[in-house]
Amino acid sequence: MSEKVILVVGYDGAELLDIACVTSSLDIANRIGANPPYRTVLATPGGHSITCDSGLRLHAQAALERFNAPLDTLLVSGGLGHAEAASGQLLVAHVRRLSTLARRVASVCTGATVLAEAGLLENRRATTHWMYAEQLARSYPAVRVDPDPIYIRDGDLATSGGVTSALDLTLSFIEEDHGMALARGVALGTVAYLQRPGAQAQLSMFLTRCSSDDLVVRRTSNHIVSHLGDDLSTATLARIAGVSERHLSRLFLTYVHETPAQYVRRARTEAAAYLLTSTALPVAAVARRSGFGTTESLRQAFLAHYSVPPSRYRLEHQPSDTR
């Protein structure tokens, strides 16, 4: 093929970022030397314009049912309209048809629902936006749903988590197609982190804040992730929150399903995992920055949380060009 055709499947209620993260990254790849270049095509039912979640309208470049050109990658976008899209028999049938013409098949976010409805995820490991993972697993029991990773590559099939994980997945495609140097150039062009490991959790406490409905839990969890090196004993946290230790523990178990101590340990472990994969700091320095008193404490936490020691975790998750 003189070019790599990437067919992006859109529909009413698709998430604009799910589409743009892919198309913009591939456009940057072309501008800095992708050879063969990418040609992205937005295909929709009937070739009609679609209204995205945000209310913006996108003009299609092809009708899904009439597309028969040579195809490198079939990618289904996600969005709030994913369930309705998956209920459309013609859309699903043509996704299934086009999957047989593509070298690889992928979905972004809740686009996994369409792939599952088309039978393309049966007995395959897949992910989706963490908020919809339980629903996907319940609706399609033959799919091995893992809600944690940013993206999962299972042979010629790839699925990604929520929204901007589309960028991470696309960078992995660019690296596969053209090498790490070009992927790094695209990451620089998008001011993106190259590269978050696909196995990194979508819902990391180090990168997000607790969204609990309980104000005490939310404030305490935000204090924890912002002060990992401080004294975070339950007694200290209870004093900061202005409640008893017993009441704080009861609130955390109710809203987070962990004790305060367990939450602190997990937050520190995820922070250490981020530092191990994004910096060259020695393990001892990582332990100090993430709030562990000793490297042995860090090691025990990693064995419990990731089943590997910190040094092994770093080796397995560092960018491929540095291995």
Rank of each mutant, 00 (worst) to 15 (best):
D214Q: 12
D230K: 14
A60Y: 01
G88I: 08
S172Y: 02
H94Q: 07
L120P: 03
E296C: 04
V243W: 04
R323Q: 10
G10M: 02
R209Y: 10
D146M: 00
V243R: 09
S107E: 03
H305S: 09
G229W: 00
D231M: 04
V5F: 09
S160N: 07
F252C: 05
A34E: 06
F292I: 04
R104T: 08
R250N: 12
M205V: 09
Q89G: 02
T23H: 05
A106C: 13
L182V: 09
I19N: 06
D148S: 04
A20S: 10
L74M: 13
A60R: 02
P37I: 02
P309Y: 08
V217C: 05
G79R: 07
S290N: 01
M205S: 09
A116H: 02
S24Q: 09
G81D: 03
R312K: 14
V216I: 15
I32W: 01
R97N: 07
D72M: 05
P310T: 12
A126I: 08
D154K: 11
F173W: 15
Y140V: 00
R138P: 03
V308W: 09
L7V: 01
L188S: 06
S139R: 10
V95C: 03
H129Q: 01
R314N: 05
T234N: 09
Y151N: 02
R268W: 12
D12V: 01
A192T: 15
M180F: 12
A85H: 03
T295F: 00
T295G: 07
W130R: 00
E84H: 03
V108A: 14
E176C: 10
A20Y: 10
L167I: 15
F67R: 01
Q89K: 11
N68F: 06
V145F: 00
R312H: 05
S311V: 08
R124H: 13
Y306H: 12
T234L: 03
L203S: 06
A241R: 05
P141V: 10
E117Q: 15
N123I: 00
H129F: 13
V243G: 06
L75N: 04
A183S: 05
R219I: 01
G161M: 06
P70N: 13
V256W: 03
A86M: 12
N35W: 06
Q89V: 14
T190C: 09
G179H: 01
A273W: 07
A187W: 03
H94K: 14
G88N: 15
G185D: 09
V283Y: 03
D154A: 14
N123F: 04
T236F: 14
G47L: 12
A166S: 15
L275K: 10
G81F: 08
A280E: 15
T220Y: 07
L281H: 06
S87R: 14
A238R: 01
K4T: 08
S77R: 05
E296H: 11
S211M: 11
K4M: 07
S77V: 15
S107Q: 09
P36Y: 12
L64R: 07
L26N: 05
S77T: 15
F292L: 09
A241N: 05
T259L: 09
L136G: 00
T269H: 04
T190V: 15
Y313Q: 10
H227R: 06
A272Q: 05
R138I: 12
L75V: 14
R144I: 11
L251Y: 00
L251M: 00
S204P: 07
G46T: 00
R196H: 11
T159F: 11
